[in-house]
Design a binder for these strands. Structure first.
Lengths: 148, 148
DNA sequence: CCCTGAACCTATAGTCGCTATAGAAGTTAG
DNA sequence: CTAACTTCTATAGCGACTATAGGTTCAGGG
């Protein structure tokens, strides 16, 4: 049996995050010690490692919730899990594309700045180009969405 | 003079976002019409386009605030603006690296799922590998940070 | 000149995935 | 036994918006 601190250390997840996962129902409420402290089983450690790994891969908590419930029913076909992973892959590929374009633009900006005064600075100038070249509305996952 | 709706359309920014930018002091309070509606100048349109473009490039509002105040003092050297852009570029490069690794891992997962039952599903299995191979604590910008 | 409907106003709450804080209570090593 | 550490609950905050409610103003048409 592990305390919440040990569990967090073992899984690479901070203590408040574990309590948060419990709060939103991603982890079930654990046993408690005589003094009301949470006690976790090895199985919960596995589950938390799964969550952490999936988060690192960019899965949303919603997707992870689905994957967890799938893994709780191992007799069903795995098409659903596969679909989630494929959607995730498509996400990542589109982010990669946009980030690559972004990188090119930033590199152009940095190269052009020759150490003069702001008035001549291409960094600021490069950002002042008009928006709205095609369709004004911002899509939900514009380039900025690919970043923190 | 533009109403907030026209401004938003011209800059590609939603109306509530403009009001939000005003609230946090990124845009100054505009003039008002007789009926208390916001009226914006062309200069504000430029400023908002700048903000939008910078956001698309992944700059935080904090960085944009700095860039805006720099562009308001065009007689100073542009080293500061250059530094901000370079930091941004480094950010993007690191995200790109991590996203690329991620993509490889997701591709591996998807390929391995052969359409069987969950019990044999590599997607779920791939996510169950133990964490904490080197240093348990999650860094602030782990892979997940590169995603939405 | 009035009416309708769109666009505007303010204020507040919600989103996601945590993180931080406060103050109390439990646990462990010396 | 005491000091230091961990844990407990509850609540608020982060960034960057987005949504909702309930009201006001404006532009065009009859």
């Amino acid at each position: 049996m592990l305390t919440i601190g040990k569990l967090g250390q073992a899984a690479g997840v901070k203590v408040p995050t574990i309590r948060y996962y419990e709060q939103i129902g991603l982890l079930t409420e654990p046993e408690r010690s005589a003094g009301n402290q949470r006690l976790y089983s090895r199985a919960t450690l596995d589950r938390l490692c799964f969550v952490r790994h999936a988060r690192d891969l960019g899965f949303t908590l919603e997707a992870i919730r689905d994957l967890l419930s799938l893994s709780d029913h191992p007799d069903q076909p795995c098409a659903a899990a596969d679909a989630i992973a494929k959607a995730q892959l498509a996400e990542v590929e589109s982010r990669l594309e946009r980030l690559t374009a972004l990188k090119a633009e930033l590199e152009r900006m940095v190269v052009q700045c020759a150490g003069g005064r702001i008035a001549d600075c291409r960094v600021i100038e490069a950002l002042s180009e008009p928006a709205a070249e095609k369709g004004a509305g911002r899509r939900k996952d514009d380039a900025a969405g690919a970043l923190a």
